[in-house]
Amino acid sequence: MLTRQISLSVPIFLFIFLFQEAVVNQFKLPGGGFSLFVIFALIWAVISTPEIAALTGFGAGILMDMSQSAGGPVGQWTLIMIIVCYGVSYLGYGDGNINGNPIGVVFFVVVANLITGLLFLASSALLGVTTGSFTQILLTLLGHSLWTLVITPIVLPVFSFMHNFVFETRTVL
């Protein structure tokens, strides 16, 4: 069972990562744009068990660290994604109002995305990575949150379907 889940999840994660790097990153969108891969990882985490969410965060973080545009040292995104993915899954696990309700999932993903940005800033300050002026950071965080709010409801059915296919759960959001 676990072998099947892993062997299906890994290509999906790699494909979304590749899509992010080769397609989404081609566009210079206002407000800093969005990260489809982060949105995907967060959705995956919200609708999974905390155990799977932690592993999701680890895998997604490793891939993000391998990205050329990752500003900090290898492991920084891994650490952040483990914490955020586990956190959102733990808080929402078993609560149908959150992980069974599309609005709840969207809300969790937007907040988690914002927290991801804030954790990146905090860890960057500790690791000596320059992140820019306060105004620029504020605009980027706001831009990311708004884009996430717009994109998440659009991609949620697709990602939910993939999750359902991999884990053979009953409900598709």
Partner: peptide
Amino acid sequence: TRLLLIILIVTALFLITLDL
């Protein structure tokens, strides 16, 4: 799950240390 979480976090910190 907590054990797994600790292992993953330690791995991430290990990677950061190696990179730095």
